[in-house]
Design a protein around this nucleic acid. Structure first.
Length: 582
DNA sequence: GCCGTTTTCGGCCCGACTGTTTTCAGTCG
């Protein structure tokens, strides 16, 4: 039982309670529990039975939720959820995914019209049966029709968008806004600013002394397909690429408070406002206000908002309510790793296997980025589809690297190319090169590329066997997930991390936007166990080096500091680690 | 259902927009 599965059950319970009109704070407790469980670095299943008491130390988990976690782990289901589903069909949860349908409407649909799923709703709308119910008018019917069509069109694909797609829309839209005189600043907030791996929509914030002009500029952007909403202070549009963008227009002295508010996360904001309230302040998107006098005491900049409630400024990537507020209070926030800290890249391909640039071109591009080293890591022979190298071709390519290093040395370039390989971890955990060949390498990156459907215990064994070989330095894309396409393979990450610690192996954080593997949560786990993380790009062309930002920001979401990142170390120290010297 | 620098009981973040209705409920973020 994965943490994400337990979280999903709590999520469902929260929604079902909401539909039943239960105490909204009870509903929130289940939502909060869902978030708490999914951001845990250890598996809840493991804690049950072993260290069960520690469950209640997690904020948001009390006695009742604790008992339900135990029940879910033991039985695979939750009696409360079953009980709730006796009153409603489970298709009712899908109704909530229709934009404009919340718990109240879902309950109304079911009670008055017997609508229990999206198909029923669509039928009712098409037959014009909604008008019979008090409180539902013509406009609602039109909006529902459109919302159902939108729901259908994204079914099967992920509801959220990869961060990289969202990023590609950001710059152009900002420029479009800033080209109007009254718009002084334009920034994107929301999950994009927190660098979440996927985003549901974009939140743009602009400072303007003419709200109407800013709103008009916003909806007249060339990529807009549809204006979803428009008021005096905010508007929302859907772009041609289907991404929704929300705009909020604020005045100069509100910008910081608004930026804080719209960056979220929601649970971070709830915790922050709760804290403010206890201190006699009220925080909203316009500023921080004294509860007593009603006077505004902060709001122009974000830092001021945090300082007013006794905290130092918190990096957006940390704002998930998983301990950052307590850390900020004590001045114990991590000093997060930065893109500029990265000294080199330890995973890339050239035209020898399935890359698009030559060895020399990759080296040159890396030098241009200011790196002091790279490792060339072609595929091994088992990965035939990527023109993996056998031992003979491998040795030939190593010679080319030696030659290049010679040349670089003569030129007095402070740059070194490490001899590496992305060795396939075979089905049985053995490595796809002979030991002799592996011995000639500076940097052995090992990865799983086949048999993704193995049982959890076997996959864990497979990877650990590779780690225990003593021949491996780094495990690449450790879970194999492709965001939106392929789930991670079943594997006990904690066991893998512990084995990595014992055998001086680092774990890769692959920066490809569809991988981001390790995830932020797994980065925290690695850090807790003192296992270094390598932020690599797995570049197949020189352009892919730019993806490093996605890796670094994911690492930042995982609270990693410079010291936690292997390739933030200078070459000498890196070599020491690769020689298993720690 | 959770939680505690007022509290083990009584609170629990806050505001904009829409639609429908004539003062507000529901949804969303």
């Amino acid at each position: 039982m994965e943490n994400s599965e337990i979280a999903a059950i709590f999520e469902d319970i929260a929604h079902l309670l909401e539909i039943r009109g239960e105490n909204p704070f009870r509903v929130r407790s289940y939502k909060r529990a869902a978030e708490a469980v999914s951001s845990m670095t250890v598996s809840a299943e493991k804690l049950v039975g072993e260290d069960e008491k520690s469950l209640e130390e997690i904020p948001g988990i009390g006695k009742s939720i604790h008992e339900k976690i135990v029940e879910i782990v033991r039985t695979g289901d939750c009696s409360l959820k079953k009980e709730l589903l006796e009153k409603f069909p489970d298709g009712i949860l899908d109704l909530l995914k229709i934009s404009g349908v919340g718990p109240k409407k879902a309950a109304l649909f079911y009670e008055k019209l017997g609508i229990g799923n999206v198909d029923d709703l669509e039928k009712a709308v098409n037959e014009g049966r909604l008008g019979d119910v008090a409180g539902l008018g013509e406009k609602t019917e039109i909006n529902l029709k459109r919302a159902i069509a939108a729901y259908r069109s994204i079914q099967g694909s992920s509801l959220r968008y990869k961060l990289s797609l969202a990023m590609s829309s950001v710059d152009k839209y900002s420029k479009h806004m800033l080209s109007v005189k009254s718009v002084k600043r334009a920034e994107f907030a929301g999950s994009l600013r927190r660098w979440k791996e996927t985003v549901g929509d974009l939140d743009m914030l602009v400072e303007s002394n003419d709200h109407e002009a800013a709103l008009e500029r916003f909806v007249s952007y060339g990529e807009v397909a549809e204006v979803v909403q428009r008021g005096e202070k905010k508007a929302a549009v859907r772009l041609k690429n289907r991404l929704q963008v929300d705009l909020r227009v604020v005045d100069k002295d509100e910008f910081g408070a608004a930026l804080q508010y719209f960056t979220g996360s929601k649970s971070h904001n709830v915790a922050l406002r709760d804290r403010a309230k206890r201190m006699g302040f009220k925080i909203n998107e316009y500023g921080v206000f004294s509860e007593k006098t009603g006077k505004k005491v902060a709001g122009a900049d974000e830092k001021g908002v945090y300082e007013k409630v006794g905290l130092c400024w918190i990096e957006p990537e940390l704002r998930e309510d998983i301990g950052e507020i307590a850390a900020a209070e004590k001045g114990k926030l991590p000093k997060l790793v930065d893109v500029d800290d990265i000294q080199g890249d330890l995973h890339m391909h050239t035209t020898e296997s399935d890359g698009h640039n030559s060895l020399e071109q990759m080296a040159e591009a890396a030098i241009k980025r200011g790196y002091s080293y790279i490792a060339i890591t072609e595929h091994s022979k088992a990965v035939g589809i990527a023109h993996g190298l056998d031992e003979t071709r491998l040795r030939k390519s190593l010679k080319a690297i030696d030659n290049l290093n010679e040349k670089l040395k003569k030129k007095k370039a402070k740059f070194f190319v490490l001899k590496g390989a992305e060795v396939d971890i075979r089905h049985d955990g053995s490595l796809d090169y002979e030991e002799d060949a592996l011995g000639e390498l500076d940097c052995v990156v090992a990865a799983v590329h086949s048999s993704f459907n193995m049982p959890k215990a076997e996959m864990t064994e497979r990877i650990i066997r590779a780690i225990e070989s003593g021949l491996v330095n780094i495990i690449a894309h450790p879970t194999g997930r492709l965001i939106g396409y392929r789930p991670p393979y079943e594997m006990d990450m904690e066991k893998v991390v512990k084995a990595a610690k014992t055998h001086n192996v680092a774990l890769e954080l692959n920066s490809f936007p569809e991988r981001l593997d390790l995830s932020d949560v797994h980065c925290r786990l690695a850090k807790e166990h003192g296992v270094p993380v390598v932020i690599s790009t797995d570049a197949h062309s020189e352009h892919d080096f730019a993806n490093i930002v996605y890796g670094v920001h994911t690492a930042r979401r995982g609270w990693l500091e410079k010291n936690d990142v292997l390739n933030a170390r200078p070459l000498v120290e890196l070599k020491k680690f690769l020689a298993k010297g720690g």
